[in-house]
């Protein structure tokens, strides 16, 4: 896939992450309803698990919050031992929300209506 055929998730969504013991959660919020419908198809549990493979995530559960145009991803064992024991600099998964926005998804045909609306 060439660069023009993909977009960064961050073009159509924003995110926040935190820890749940040794697991992490990443909330992803589409800017628009169109973007939410699109991400339903492409931002799968499998895709997110592959993306975070280097953190040795063992399982990913996706939960939908359609009225908020949002998803919650639960990343199992993502923190190398959790806030209390992990030796990593990011013991609490604070970086993962920023990280996931770099994930590449295929460029949707109707990208224009998925971008952040300008008020």
């Amino acid at each position: 896939m060439t660069a023009t055929q993909t977009i960064r998730l961050g073009e159509i969504a924003h995110a926040r992450s935190g820890d749940k013991g040794n697991h992490a959660n990443v909330g992803v919020i589409a800017y628009t309803w169109a973007g939410f419908d699109y991400l339903r198809d492409v931002l799968t549990e499998q895709r997110v698990k592959e993306y975070f493979a280097e953190l040795k995530v063992t399982r990913v559960d996706r939960f939908e919050l359609p009225r908020l145009s949002a998803f919650n991803f639960l990343l199992y064992n993502a923190l190398g031992g959790g806030a209390s024991q992990s030796l990593r600099i990011d013991t609490q998964g604070k970086l993962l929300g920023t990280s996931i926005l770099e994930l590449e998804v295929p460029r949707p045909d109707s990208l224009d209506i998925m971008l952040r609306p300008l008020h």
Binding site: H14, G18, D61
Partner: peptide, 14 residues
């Protein structure tokens, strides 16, 4: 957007 980001902070099954 700021409120929704925080709604999703550190939750499991919504």
């Amino acid at each position: 957007q700021t409120v929704t980001e925080q709604l999703l902070y550190e939750i499991g099954d919504p």
